[in-house]
Amino acid sequence: MSRARRHLTRFPLLLAASACSVLFLGGCDHLHQDMATQPKYRPLSPSDFFRDGRSERPLLENTVARGSLANDEFVIPKDSNAFPLEVDQALLERGQERFTAFCTPCHGLQGDGNGMVALRGMKHPPSYHIDRLREAPNGYFYDVITNGFGQMYSYGVQIPPRDRWAIVAYVRALQLSRDAHVSELPAELREKLSQGDSAK
């Protein structure tokens, strides 16, 4: 067989070999995983080591997590009207943001208990604008957020203590928004209000 002929017969071989190498390269993802899949736990990854299959370990009973002692200052008795933080615009805005994320599904944007999830069939929570809740102390709201009440489960896990107080402050602001007299407003706001009336 001449050399040229041999070359020709090799051609399909070459073709097959390059096709194989393409496939092979494409399969790299499955071949070299040792860096991409390291023997370590990422958040919430399953574990063969622990009996319940969780690498994320649940809190042990009667233990205090590191750093959570700092939250002691936020713990106010249920029947106390104290407020552990300085109330300013920033805190109220934080409270509004947290309230919108965590509370409005049931309590509604205005706190009257007409949130979207309540409309879907949850029991409507009481409006914040009833006398019982207007007169309830600050500690009561903090306690309900922390431990839940009736149909409402506890929100202690989702909302850290400082944010709970921000929400309490915002709920107070909501209550005031429905229970304030025009005469209590600063002069410039009063003027704005009367202008708004005439504009209608």
Partner: peptide
């Protein structure tokens, strides 16, 4: 549809 904030679950 329900308008629940992302952070409600992904806190």
């Amino acid at each position: 549809d329900d308008g629940i904030d992302c952070r409600y679950c992904h806190a």
